[in-house]
Simulated assay, not measured.
Amino acid sequence: MSNTKYILGSFADPDEMMHGIDKLQANNISIFDCFTPMPIHGIEAKLGVKPSRLPIAAFIFGALGTTLGFSLLFYTMSYDWPMNIGGKPSMPLPNFVPVTFEVTILLCALGMVATFFFRNHLFPGRAPRVMDLRATDDRFIIAIDAQENTDHALIDNLLKDAGAVEVKYNERKYVSYE
């Protein structure tokens, strides 16, 4: 096998890229990923991307925040240092609602930011990973795994017929900004 890892089809128009995806899928060629400078509605369904599981993470972080907020209030107000304030009970549940709500929102937001950075490998000091630098500016890129799809001439012809401005063969997985 060759050292080519990815075949990159560069398009100037998003409609041409969507047409290219249709042509490749009609010929049973699996697409690794698409890189675009702007969101394109419907591309996830066309590529078969599964729905995100981030709502599950948000619920877990929110439940953790609710539990921690209520536990902190219960421990301080009822267990550790109960005080008689105006004859009120030491565990006034309605008074716990605002603090519990705020801790829930805080932990949910911070947890989602941490999950986003972890899931997308956006750690401080890490170089961005992109297939082609023009995908962040004005090009729409279709990346095809060259190891899985061995008929490179067919892929090249399909991409050019669909309106690809350029077809490139990448030997490395990602190109950094350096």
Rank of each mutant, 00 (worst) to 15 (best):
P39A: 09
I40S: 08
H41R: 03
G42K: 06
E44Y: 14
A45Y: 09
K46N: 02
L47V: 08
L47D: 07
G48F: 05
G48S: 09
G48L: 03
V49T: 15
V49S: 10
V49N: 14
P51C: 05
R53N: 11
I56Q: 05
A58P: 02
F59C: 04
F61T: 00
G62V: 00
A63H: 04
A63L: 12
A63S: 14
L64K: 00
T67C: 10
T67Q: 04
G69M: 08
G69W: 03
F70Y: 13
F70L: 14
F70A: 15
F70M: 13
S71G: 15
L72D: 04
M77A: 14
S78Y: 12
S78R: 06
Y79A: 04
W81Q: 12
W81Y: 15
W81T: 14
N84F: 06
N84W: 02
I85R: 07
G86T: 07
G86E: 01
G87A: 07
G87P: 12
K88L: 07
K88F: 04
P89M: 00
P89A: 05
M91L: 15
M91K: 11
M91D: 12
P94L: 09
N95D: 06
N95G: 13
F96V: 07
F96M: 11
V97H: 11
V97Q: 09
V99C: 06
V99W: 02
T100Q: 05
T100F: 10
E102S: 11
E102M: 11
V103P: 06
T104Y: 02
T104V: 09
I105Y: 05
I105F: 12
L106N: 02
L106V: 03
A109D: 07
G111K: 09
A114D: 02
H121A: 14
H121L: 15
H121T: 08
L122E: 11
P124G: 10
G125M: 03
R126S: 12
R126E: 12
A127W: 14
P128M: 14
V130R: 07
M131D: 03
M131T: 07
D132H: 13
A135S: 15
A135H: 04
D138Q: 13
D138W: 04
I141K: 06
A143E: 03
I144N: 13
Q147I: 12
Q147E: 15
Q147W: 04
E148T: 12
E148M: 02
